[in-house]
Simulated assay, not measured.
Amino acid sequence: MAHKSHRQKALKAQLEEQPVISLVQPLSSSSSSKTPQSPSSMDVDDDDGDVMITSAPVIDSSTSTSTLPSTVQASSSGFQPLSNAAQSTVLKNEFRRVAIPPHRLSPLKRDWVNIYTPLVEMLGLQVRMNVKRRAVELKTSGHTVDSGAVQKGADFVKAYALGFDVNDAIALLRLDDLYLDSFEIKDVKTLHGDHLSRAIGRIAGEGGKVKFTIENASRTRIVLADTNIHILGSVQNIKIARDAVVSLILGSPPGKVYAHLKTVGARMKQRF
């Protein structure tokens, strides 16, 4: 009992010396110069149980974010944000090679002047025809300004390789919302023999009449290469043209497709 009363007196004396324990204390100049210490704790054993009083680390709420080190001001990923100059730089020595099918080599040689001229003047790329590899090679130069110039040039050359005219493919360089979409007839329906031939005939029409009508109504360009169908246009227009071609593949008569295109065209005019 004497030992217990002596312990209670010592605890009472310590509590009188430190009557208030604050979890958040102002940061003084003297304490900032000292090295941080581990949180102090005081354990008191009693018959009823254990009591632990812990003082939390000191945080000064008046410190502004401008005085924090650069590592704190970084983003959540831990990296500093790029400057405007770094974001606007173009990747140097970016290279792209576009393969040309054998049946498009002769048209490529014939229209070569009309192909490399916009690539050099509009995009500032270095272009050459690799006859051995049967490909067109594109590379950035010191005059390249656009970071996506190589991709635009590759899309332009690929569109020409698929069968589009140069004047139609050059729209990929001038506009940003044009894309290429390719699919096969067998992706829609598996057809063989005369059924496949009749499906191709329904898409083309007599003298290409049906294909031209779909192009004019949907404001796209369509290339029908055997069983492959390539469509050049915006996302919305590509969807309209693809739906019309799919209907023809499934067996719809051209008259029904014309009526649907007329309705869609009127709806597009009202929207815009």
Rank of each mutant, 00 (worst) to 15 (best):
R133V: 00
I115C: 00
D46E: 14
N228K: 15
R219C: 00
F156L: 06
S147E: 13
K109M: 02
S76E: 10
K152Q: 13
L162F: 13
T35Y: 10
V150F: 11
R202H: 12
V150C: 02
R104T: 09
S61Y: 15
G233W: 12
L27W: 01
L125N: 03
K9I: 11
L250H: 11
S22P: 01
R242H: 09
T63D: 11
L248E: 02
L191H: 00
S64C: 02
N84P: 01
L119D: 09
V264Q: 06
S38R: 14
S38F: 10
L173D: 02
L180N: 06
S76R: 10
I249R: 07
D177P: 00
T144E: 08
K9D: 09
S32M: 11
R221D: 02
Q87L: 13
T71Q: 10
N167V: 15
D43F: 08
I53D: 01
Q14P: 06
A225W: 10
L138N: 03
S197G: 05
T140D: 13
P81F: 05
S247T: 04
G153R: 02
F212M: 04
V145H: 07
V223W: 03
A266K: 15
P39Q: 04
D45P: 00
R134I: 06
T190C: 01
S62K: 14
A74K: 14
A99W: 09
V246W: 04
K132I: 08
L224W: 13
Y116S: 07
D243P: 07
T67K: 13
G201E: 08
G251P: 04
T190W: 06
T54L: 02
V120R: 08
K109D: 00
Q236T: 14
T140N: 05
P253W: 00
L123E: 05
H260Q: 12
D155G: 09
T263D: 10
L123G: 01
D194A: 01
T117A: 10
S77C: 03
L261F: 14
K239E: 15
Q18W: 13
D243Q: 08
L162E: 08
L11A: 02
L15N: 08
R96H: 04
V245D: 00
G163R: 02
R7D: 07
L11D: 01
R110E: 03
V245Y: 02
G163A: 01
R221Q: 06
H143C: 01
L173R: 03
V90F: 14
A225I: 07
T35V: 05
E184D: 04
S55W: 11
A154K: 01
V210I: 06
D226A: 12
D47W: 14
Q73K: 11
D243K: 11
A217S: 15
L175Y: 14
V90P: 13
K12H: 07
G207L: 05
D43S: 05
S247D: 09
R271H: 12
G124L: 08
L108M: 15
A154Q: 09
E16K: 14
S33V: 05
A199V: 12
V245G: 03
Y116I: 13
D146W: 10
P118A: 06
E17F: 08
R242Y: 05
I240W: 10
R202M: 09
T63H: 14
A266P: 00
Q151E: 15
K12T: 03
L123I: 08
P102W: 07
S197L: 07
H230G: 03
E17C: 05
T63N: 12
A154L: 03
L180T: 04
E94R: 09
M268G: 00
S106G: 03
L108N: 05
A86N: 06
L108P: 05
D187R: 11
